[in-house]
Simulated scan of single mutants.
Amino acid sequence: MNPSFISLDWGTSSLRATLVSADGEIVENRSAPGGVMTVKDRDFHTPLNAICEDWVDIHGCPIVASGMIGSRQGWVEAPYLACPATPAAAALAFTTLSVADKVDMHIIPGVRCGGVDSIHDVMRGEETQIWGAGVGSECLCVLPGTHSKWVSVGEDSMITHFATYITGELYGLLTKHGILGRLMEFGGCNDEAFHAGVSLGLKHPQQATHVVFAARTIRLMDEMEPGSLPDYLSGILIGVEVASAMAAFASDMSRPILLIGDDDLCRRYRWALESAGFEPARAGQDATVKGHVRIAREAGIVG
């Protein structure tokens, strides 16, 4: 088996560990709910030991980690890598710490860029997914999530610029803490309502805070059932995001579009992009681990 390193995808709410062989193949996967925001009193050793202490003790191989573990709320803050960013540059910018005087943990830096009107943007973890997704040259990557990322990628997987849309977070806030959620019933699924919401959002991105209110008024007018409203609102928000991103990435929209991430979210974004006239492709599985392998190879950890 001859493991070369332990891959850690340590995010806000979950922790995934993968034992990787010397030729870059997956030996074993594990997951646990020990995300960064669940760690008490900054005791990061406990969730790490719970998921892979035996690997560390038996194999003594280093750890390569990405995600929120390198954020200001994480174990140690790993400085952002400025765009344009490549796997080779990330390998040279590891933030390294010793874990219980046993092995080194190499934290991959996040990526930052400056946007329109000097609006700054950042990502942590998505860069690793992109570098492991088999992205071709001159591609536009879309990574749906709580904070969705639209990323322009050049030759050799170079991240040139990107933008964040907090669509998932807005959905959670509006449904759980706002008046829109008062009329909703959750637990069902209505694709027709989702498509209707996408259509509305795509048409009126300049009036985003106005069209979002339609998720309330359409029920007040008895034109949609409570169980369909969550999907309708989801569609509106994703439609607004896609239309906004189309304007922001106008020069990139002729490139191949690649969706990376959760299956259900990627399916929704594919529908929205198809409604806007595009034909996105879907990235394969294990993009994060493959990204870790690529960066580890650049760092000389994998042969």
Rank of each mutant, 00 (worst) to 15 (best):
C61I: 15
C61N: 08
P62D: 09
P62C: 10
P62H: 03
V64K: 04
V64G: 04
G67E: 05
M68G: 00
I69A: 10
I69N: 03
S71I: 09
S71F: 07
S71G: 11
Q73D: 11
Q73N: 12
Q73L: 13
G74C: 00
G74W: 02
G74P: 01
W75V: 07
W75Y: 08
W75R: 07
V76I: 15
V76F: 05
E77F: 11
A78V: 01
A78Q: 05
P79D: 08
P79W: 11
L81P: 01
L81D: 03
A82K: 15
A82T: 14
C83I: 07
A85P: 07
A85D: 05
T86E: 10
P87D: 08
A89P: 01
A89V: 01
A89G: 07
A89D: 12
A90K: 00
A91K: 03
A91S: 10
L92P: 00
A93N: 15
A93F: 06
F94P: 01
T95D: 06
T95Q: 11
T95P: 03
T95G: 05
T96I: 08
L97F: 13
L97R: 15
L97C: 14
S98Q: 13
S98I: 07
V99E: 01
V99D: 00
A100M: 15
A100S: 13
A100Y: 06
D101W: 12
D101C: 08
D101I: 09
D101N: 13
D101Y: 10
K102W: 03
V103Y: 12
V103G: 10
V103Q: 02
D104A: 15
D104K: 15
M105Y: 08
M105L: 13
M105F: 09
M105I: 15
M105D: 00
H106W: 03
H106D: 05
H106Q: 07
H106L: 07
H106G: 00
I107P: 04
I107K: 05
I107L: 13
I107M: 08
P109N: 05
P109T: 12
P109H: 12
V111P: 09
R112C: 12
R112N: 14
R112K: 15
R112M: 13
R112G: 12
G114R: 15
G114W: 14
G114A: 11
G114F: 14
